[in-house]
Simulated scan of single mutants.
Amino acid sequence: MMMHRRALAAVSSLFFVAFAATQASAADVNIYTSRQPDLIQPVLDAFTKETGLSTATIFIDKGLEERIKAEGANSPADLIMTVDIGRLDAAKQAGVVQPVDSEVLATNIPEKFRDREKDWFALTTRARVVYASRDRVDVDQISYKELADPKWKGRLCTRSGQHQYNIALIAAYIAHYGEDAAREWVTGLRDNLARRPEGGDREQAKAIYAGECDIALGNTYYVGKMATDEREPEQKEWAAAIRVVMPTFDNGLTHVNVSGVSLAKNAPHAENAIRLMEFLSGDEAQKIYAELNYEYPVEPGIETSELVKSFGELKPDTLSLDDIARHRAKASEIVDEVDYDGGPQS
């Protein structure tokens, strides 16, 4: 029976790959992405309108690199679009991307948001901030260190410590203060939790709205998405229940992460794919990201949306993305070591 199940799983996997390849083969640019399709479709539509080139997206939340490796030289993937420096670096380390030498990308994207070896390029940034209850929290400034202060005991909510957004933040903390300090900090966060970590960033805002906790960690763009959600209007109430507070390291700067793009190693439509990469780094796409996705554009001179401006001034940390990626494995070890996802223990 076990072998039968494994055989069925293998056949199903091969069928999916073949089906995906067939679906994508009709497009001019094939995109494997871990980003929710509705977040990137507006910019893809704008690209098609400007160039006449069609796009196809295949959403792969987990195992993206493994999928491309399994497909090998026959992979239909032209571009990899994902969130988090860790996932961009993982694709690079897996050997499923190739460098792109483009004057357009070099001009539009600041050096700190480009891989040194040109294997990935950031398209947007987002800040990892504090969601604070409007009714129960009266602070305008807070440091990341202070989140571990016992005064917040039983008042903090987060998603899993192993989620890529939190791992990146812990990795940044390691880069700033060292492993021992980071271990102590994560332990303090754990003991300040109101409950075991669960849900996504939106659910942390919901928990504040419900009175389950008073502060939470979350990304900035989720606040914009909740505040304007017409399909699930109850999310507007969650957004209205919180204020965004920009936490800082000792340097007075706030942790940011990125979404980005890489050219797939065996891209069958490499020229078209690079055209899309360049388009995504340009004015029109960057404005769409800002206005519709409530993200911070990486192209200098492109303003954020009015809603994002209402969060207050973001002063992004100058820590390199490479430094953050380098400490991710240790950050993950610390989360398990202190049993963060087990919830408060003191």
Rank of each mutant, 00 (worst) to 15 (best):
L263D: 11
L169V: 09
E230Y: 09
A182Q: 03
E234A: 12
G252H: 12
I208P: 00
L169Q: 06
A168W: 00
E232T: 14
A264G: 14
E237T: 14
D140C: 04
E184W: 00
Y222R: 07
Y177F: 10
E203D: 15
A205R: 01
K151D: 07
Q141E: 15
V258N: 06
Q204N: 12
P247Y: 01
A171I: 08
L217R: 01
I215F: 02
E198F: 08
A148K: 05
E237L: 15
T187I: 02
L217T: 02
S133C: 10
V261D: 02
V258G: 02
E184D: 15
R190S: 07
S160R: 13
S143F: 08
V223G: 01
Y173I: 14
G161A: 11
T228Y: 09
P197D: 03
L169K: 06
R155Q: 15
A194P: 07
K151N: 08
Q235S: 08
T228I: 00
A182R: 03
T228P: 07
S262D: 06
I170C: 04
R159T: 14
G252L: 08
R159V: 07
G260I: 01
I208C: 02
T158C: 05
I208D: 01
A148E: 05
A205G: 08
S133I: 07
G200K: 03
I242M: 01
D135Y: 03
G224N: 04
N192S: 08
G178H: 14
D201K: 00
A240C: 06
Q235W: 11
V256F: 11
D149Q: 11
Y144H: 08
N257A: 13
N192E: 09
R231V: 13
R195H: 13
D201W: 03
N219Q: 10
L147M: 15
Y209I: 00
R134M: 05
A175K: 10
Q141I: 03
E146A: 15
W152P: 12
T248Y: 05
G200R: 06
Y165G: 07
C213L: 08
E184R: 05
K153G: 04
D191A: 11
Q164L: 12
T220Y: 12
G188Q: 04
D229Q: 10
R195C: 02
R196G: 08
I142D: 09
L189E: 04
K225E: 14
V245H: 05
W152G: 12
D180L: 07
N257E: 13
E232R: 14
A227M: 07
A194T: 09
H255A: 11
V256D: 04
E146F: 03
E237G: 06
Y144L: 12
Y144D: 10
W238P: 00
E198P: 00
W152H: 13
R159P: 03
M246G: 02
A132T: 06
R195V: 05
V245R: 03
A216V: 02
P150W: 07
Y221E: 09
V244W: 05
K236I: 09
S133Q: 06
I242G: 01
E146L: 04
L217P: 03
K206H: 13
D201M: 07
A148Q: 03
N166M: 13
L189P: 02
D135I: 06
L253F: 04
H255L: 03
R195W: 06
G178A: 09
E212A: 12
D138V: 10
